[in-house]
Each structure stands twice: as C-alpha cells, then as structure tokens.
C-alpha cells in the first residue's frame, strides 16, 4: 500500500505492507537508521520519534498510521549547517551517553518534554523519561544534560 508523510520537513513516499512498522519504514526504506530498535516491545524508547508534534514509539505504530503525518526523527534535530541542537550539544557537554544506543530516543523524548515544559524540574525530567531505558549511564548525566539544555544552572549537580 502507498504511504506518504513528511519526515524532517521532506515529503517522502513509499510502498509498505499493512504490518510495516513506522520504525521499519524509517530505517529500511528511508535509511534513517538513527531511529534505533532496541526491545521491539515498546518498552525501551530507543525508537522514539515525533508524529504530529508528540513523542511516540515508532516500533509500536504502523507506518500506515503515519500516512499524511509530520514525522520528526533524530536526523532532523541538528541545525541546517550540521551543528548540533541545543539538546544534542548538552548531551555531549555533560556526558549524557556512553554506548549511545538509547541516545536518539532520549534526545527525541527530551525535545518533546522541553516543547511542553521548557523549564522542568529534575523530578519532572526523570518522570518523563520513564519510557526511555539506558543501561549505561544510570541516567544522572542524561537528566543533567536535559536540565542544562533547558537553560537551567546545573553546576550544583555533582559530576559523576
């Protein structure tokens, strides 16, 4: 079946099966492999993308359900000149990643959070990340990076 959507501002079309997942369409047909498939059971959040402005787990949504939608992926986060977004730069500055597998989902969730809640508390950040699992960092520096990206002073949060 034909599907078309706008991905990172670009109109794309494809031919998919009913059972094709959004994550599969992005990765296999559009070669946007920044969207990671971790657990494939909608628990880990590595596959989080934005659909019509809200965060969704793309491994748990059919590609055809996104027909006509505005989709945002990690590849669309950096600025046009290739420089990192504020959130991406904060992850680098505050060592918010180790292996990096969860990072695309973390960044996309963080972007969704900060759109609705530009200055979250540390507790709100941790609460919002309940659906994003990281097995390396212990979350501390991820939370710190998101707090920093929101323009808040994180100097009182000790480096770990």
């Amino acid at each position: 079946m034909k599907v078309s959507m706008t991905v990172n501002g670009r109109l794309v079309e494809g031919d998919v099966e009913g059972r094709t997942l959004l994550s599969g369409f992005l990765r296999d047909q559009l070669s946007l492999t920044g969207t990671h498939v971790g657990c494939d059971t909608a628990q880990c959040g590595a596959c989080v993308v934005h659909v019509d402005g809200v965060a969704v787990k793309s491994c748990n949504m059919l590609a055809l359900e996104a027909d006509g939608a505005e989709v945002g992926t990690i590849e669309g986060q950096a600025h046009a000149d290739g420089s990192l977004s504020v959130i991406q730069q904060a992850f680098q500055d505050h060592h918010g990643l180790q292996c990096g597998f969860c990072t695309p989902g973390m960044v996309m969730s963080a972007a969704a959070l900060l759109k609705d809640n530009p200055r979250p508390t540390e507790a709100e950040v941790r609460k919002y990340l309940e659906g994003n699992l990281c097995r390396c960092t212990g979350y501390h520096n991820i939370v710190k990076a998101i707090m920093a990206a929101s323009g808040q002073d994180v100097s009182h949060i000790a480096a770990e």
Partner: peptide, 9 residues
C-alpha cells in the same frame, strides 16, 4: 498509564 509516548497513542 504506561509512559509519555505510550499515552500519546
């Protein structure tokens, strides 16, 4: 229910 991304769907 679930987590933020689950609640959006």
């Amino acid at each position: 229910i679930g987590d933020p991304a689950v609640r959006n769907r």
